[in-house]
Write a protein that binds this DNA or RNA. Structure first.
Lengths: 352, 352
DNA sequence: CGTTCCTTTGTATACGTATACATTAATTGA
DNA sequence: TCAATTAATGTATACGTATACAAAGGAACG
């Protein structure tokens, strides 16, 4: 594999790629001058600049970012680590991240962990080896060892959506889950609902935990006793919610309203309700956390609490780039974006 | 910015990161030995291996992939270039790509072009500078200059979904659009429909072009004259399809069936039909290209032609990695996955 | 005309890695 | 017993870049 050539020594040839030395030779200048031209160094004379630029263009020279990154000790990349690409929330956030990164000259290295701790560790290792300049992460369960290592390497982290231990030490972009659930319960309460069920998600992650707790707190605030039978674990999945709703309706005491804690579960609950032949909103009201594309097209359109996903991505990207540039005080920046209740047609007056 | 220290010279310090030389010193061996341990070179003795491994672990050494990539002239990355991350098709494909890449040790650099040629050119440049080992691309309009440059650099390309000029020179993963439309028209024909309208997408890209042409070819095959008034440009968007359907129904001669050419347009058409108070499938039949989550739970459930999105990603990733490894003949591999008609409830017998 | 300063370009080098080649110690074989 | 072979490790170097420092030439100024 190690082959010497007369002019250039190569392990595996980068095909026909020219480097700055080649361009220098072709243009009759030194490689330093070529580098200066490429980096718009003002000390280069107009004449030289033109000469070199023409050679670069003529021969289609493409800068080698690998070497550049090694020399500069940065990579102009940020890592985006998500637990589940099939959840539309994450591509939506990616859209926002991408927009900011693109305008600031950063590229994105994408990692999906499939909610698996082992894969997550590998993904983090990979990102560290790559020397990403920053990391936007939705951790499954990032252990302290990994976190410590990231910190030691001086790589800034912005936590997204899910909180983890010591979240307060890091920049964070999330939403006001408690407030979101409060607005849902308030909305249902004012419509007259008292028998309010919630299909909640995994309690291991903060969105799951906070939303259920937000529900409980709001119920308490409005003086409604919590019926344990109305609390159903839907595991943040469509199937989980489907089964949960079927189970819910096998009980004697039926709820008049159902809250679902993410868009996948809203779909699952909707399907279950329709499949059981129950009418929304006449027989039961449905309200979901997270808006989704088809919510407006279902019959009836589904009332939801929405959050600004793309905005979350933009903020996270801005936070991380500010941190990379050192444009921030040491104090972690923590943002909790407000949610917004969008009333459509899936909630009706509850019987008092 | 250029600061010399006694032991190490650094431009900008990689924080506290140790390198192989540091580990070598700590373990009392040479840096070559450290490198050998890291790369599992069998020539290292068990004793040395253990000694070095312990130091690596103790000090949390993280390999620098930037330097490694420079030395090895590869990066173990592939670029994924898409025109519109907000279209659920692309994250769905990404899921498949990610799975294969993950198992084969490749990371993904993601680029979104927003259907903009200028952004696309920049994204391609960025990927080339990064020396991605391969590229999976859905080009907006990749010009020959860029394509030529990619080829010159020896970077293999797998085209996805959209074809471009000289597609036949590249590996390609797509679907059988012509066959998909044929099966739709055949299905409607056998139900007795003759007045068949199509809401088609952008003719600048092959999925738009081929689907419309597939419709025309199938219509001809079944001996149905094409009514120009039934051909509506819906621009592959929900709004476009909505307006298109409204326009369609402002004509005198109404169709008995409508074909939509992607899932967004299916939703738009559905909504328009519902909003106009027209009954599906009694007054008009609706059949869409591309399945989508809620197709089964609309009223009525929508009949569609589906394609295996995740499978497309897996195939593309396998193709590109095979190409990188040189495990393929020079002959381009071109796959057209079949589509599958899923009959639900949105098409009824047409009046003959 | 000599000194100083500025502009422009060149020379040399380090970033961290992997490995060819050199070297040493250990083992084998006749 | 000593040369030949093998095993294990060390030394030196190139990958392509950016830039500190050196150098050279010219302009400005007294």
């Amino acid at each position: 594999m190690y082959t010497y050539t007369k002019e250039r020594k190569a392990y595996r040839i980068w095909c026909v790629n020219l480097n700055q030395r080649d361009i220098a030779k072709l243009a009759g200048v030194s490689s330093a001058t070529v580098s200066r031209v490429i980096n718009n160094d003002p000390s280069v004379s107009a004449e030289t600049n033109k000469k070199v630029s023409e050679v670069i263009k003529k021969y289609g020279y493409v800068q080698n970012a690998v070497a550049r990154n090694l020399r500069l000790a940065n990579t102009k990349t940020i890592g985006y680590l998500v637990p589940d690409i099939s959840n539309p929330f994450f591509p939506a956030v990616l859209g926002g991240i991408e927009r900011i990164c693109n305008s600031r000259g950063y590229d994105i290295i994408f990692e999906n962990t499939d909610e698996d701790e082992e894969i997550e560790r590998k993904a983090i290792s990979s990102l560290l080896r790559f020397r990403v300049d920053g990391l936007i992460a939705v951790f499954v369960r990032c252990n302290q060892a990994d976190l410590q290592r990231i910190k030691m390497m001086g790589i800034p982290v912005v936590l997204l959506d899910r909180k983890i231990e010591y979240t307060e030490d890091y920049d964070y972009v999330g939403i006001d889950n408690i407030g979101g659930l409060y607005s849902i319960v308030e909305y249902l309460y004012k419509l007259g609902h008292r028998k309010i069920s919630i299909i909640y998600g995994s309690q291991d992650i903060t969105p799951g935990y906070e939303r259920l707790n937000g529900y409980k707190a709001a119920m308490k605030k409005f003086g409604i006793a919590i019926n344990e039978g109305y609390l159903i674990n839907g595991d943040f999945t469509e199937e989980g919610a489907y089964k949960g709703v079927v189970q819910l309706f096998s009980n004697d005491e039926l709820p008049t309203a159902i809250i679902t804690c993410n868009n996948l579960m809203t779909m699952g609950a909707y399907k279950a309700i329709i499949d059981m032949g129950i009418k929304i909103p006449d027989q039961v009201s449905l309200i979901g956390f997270d808006d989704f594309d088809f919510a407006t097209h279902l019959v009836p359109p589904i009332t939801v609490v929405s959050r600004a996903t793309s905005e979350m991505g933009k903020l996270a990207a801005e936070f991380i780039i500010d941190r990379i540039d050192g444009n921030t005080s040491d104090e972690p920046r923590r943002v909790f974006l407000p949610t917004k209740l969008i009333a459509r047609g899936s909630c009706s007056l509850g019987k008092l």
